[in-house]
């Protein structure tokens, strides 16, 4: 996962070369493409092996609600994705010569909210796609259109913060991220038992 996201960051710097020093606006986009693509790679394995080896049936036999299994899986995905993002971010700072120290707190907030939204949607769909024949393909087809609001809001908010704007300008995007996270947590709570139904 980490290696893949390093490669994404590096390939982008090859693809755009020195243009990136001129058009700084592309930089947040590259960061989030690396996050989302590598995150998807991790999601593919979130439910896959468990379904193959029968662990999932064991989990369902445990005296816990499907919703609790969802929360546990989602938090697991969130932690692993966050670790990957921290390493990617370090590589990103070095390669793209970004000065992030003054904006570390708002930036972490945006990255956390964006990653949370992506993990919620991703976990729901990973549970679905692991039960199908075409796992990897179907997961990306399901996740990308649904996570459009997260991607737009995260990229825009990251861009504004890196430009050194105040937290007020980012406020509208943060609201979208929070709304997305809450709506999809609620939806997962309401529907996850139906996905786990055998």
């Amino acid at each position: 996962m980490c290696l893949f996201s390093f490669l994404v960051v590096i390939i982008f710097s090859f693809a755009f070369g020195t243009d990136l020093q001129v058009y700084n606006g592309m930089v947040p986009g590259i960061l989030w493409v690396a996050f989302i693509f590598s995150g998807l790679l991790g999601l593919n394995r979130s439910f896959g092996t468990e379904r193959d080896k029968g662990t999932l049936s064991g989990l369902l036999l445990c005296p816990v609600a499907p919703w609790e299994i969802f929360l546990a899986k989602m938090i697991g995905t969130l932690i692993f994705t966050t670790i990957m993002e921290i390493f990617t971010f370090l590589v990103f700072i070095i390669l793209y010569n970004q000065n992030v120290l003054p904006f570390l707190v708002p930036l972490s907030l945006v990255i956390f909210l964006g990653t949370l939204g992506f993990s919620i949607v991703g976990t729901i769909f990973s549970a679905m796609s692991s039960a199908t024949k075409a796992r990897d393909v179907i997961l990306s087809i399901l996740v990308f259109p649904i996570s459009v609001p997260v991607i737009i809001a995260s990229v825009k908010a990251t861009g504004l913060i890196l430009e050194g704007r105040s937290i007020q300008t980012v406020y509208a995007w943060l609201k979208i991220l929070v709304a997305f996270d809450m709506v999809f947590l609620l939806l997962a709570y309401l529907t996850f038992s139906h996905i786990m139904e055998e």
């Binding site: 949607v121 399901l142 649904i146 459009v148 609001p149 737009i152 979208i176 939806l187 529907t191 996905i195």
Partner: peptide, 17 residues
């Protein structure tokens, strides 16, 4: 059915974003 619900709920969020 789950995807049908998620997909539709996502529309206003996409629109506002």
């Amino acid at each position: 059915a789950v995807f049908g619900i998620i997909g539709f709920v996502n529309v206003p969020l996409t629109f506002f974003a």
